[in-house]
């Protein structure tokens, strides 16, 4: 799948945009960062399990993407290429962190206990936050596999490429990660309620 997609912005194509960003064009850098910001934030928040320092990781990931922009050749879409760099940067940084630095996010846990029944998009965000915290109970490898598969629909082979792990290992991580998450989901009242209404909602939409 050659990624010479049309780009709605100023630049003619994704490759042109990346090339200009690689050459230090501020407009291209800005457009590239704007384009990937939401996607990278969402991905990194799940990988960091809703840690309050996740935005620091997002910044690092975006900086890494801009600094590597000239390597984009258009073999895949810009988003997929960005995902790969962001995931690698975030994982590298998360592995570097120590136990002492992770426990600070407890504060948020205390503040956000309770059931969720608010505006639909706020509700979705709160549910996603809960989900991110549940993902935090999985090991980093399993969390990465589940996140990439569920969020962006990456196949086992694609996840294996991104994480530099064998496909069979990724398959096993995905299977055990889902199994583990299933037991955690059953204990979360808000997500259980959401799951109950899931079939109805998906049929309705």
């Amino acid at each position: 799948m050659v990624g010479q997609n049309t780009n709605p912005g100023f630049f003619a194509s994704e490759v042109a945009l990346a090339r200009a960003a690689g050459e230090g064009n501020p407009r291209a850098n800005r457009e590239l960062a704007e384009r990937l910001l939401n996607r990278i934030r969402a991905t990194v928040y799940y990988l960091a399990a809703g840690d309050r320092d996740a935005d620091d990781l997002v910044q690092m990931a975006l900086v890494a993407i801009l600094r590597s922009a000239r390597t984009f050749r258009g073999d895949s879409s810009l988003e997929r290429w960005g995902d790969r760099i962001a995931v690698r940067t975030a994982l590298r940084e998360l592995k570097r962190r120590r136990w002492r630095e992770r426990i600070v996010s407890l504060d948020g846990e205390v503040a956000r206990e309770g059931r969720v029944s608010v505006d639909h998009d706020i509700q979705r965000r709160l549910l996603r936050e809960r989900l991110a915290r549940l993902l935090g109970k999985l090991s980093m490898d399993r969390r990465t596999a589940v996140t990439l598969h569920w969020m962006h629909g990456y196949s086992v082979q694609e996840i294996a490429d991104i994480t530099s792990a064998p496909a069979n290992t990724v398959r096993d991580r995905l299977r055990t990660g889902k199994k583990q998450l299933k037991s955690h989901l059953e204990k979360d009242p808000a997500l259980r309620d959401w799951a109950r209404s899931f079939i109805h909602e998906s049929q309705g939409s």
Partner: peptide, 24 residues
Amino acid sequence: DSCRSLAAASALMHHSDDAGPAQP
């Protein structure tokens, strides 16, 4: 129920051009 909860979580997580669990 349990498979549905996983499917619901997967749907919840599916990226739709917003910031996911992050504060917008």
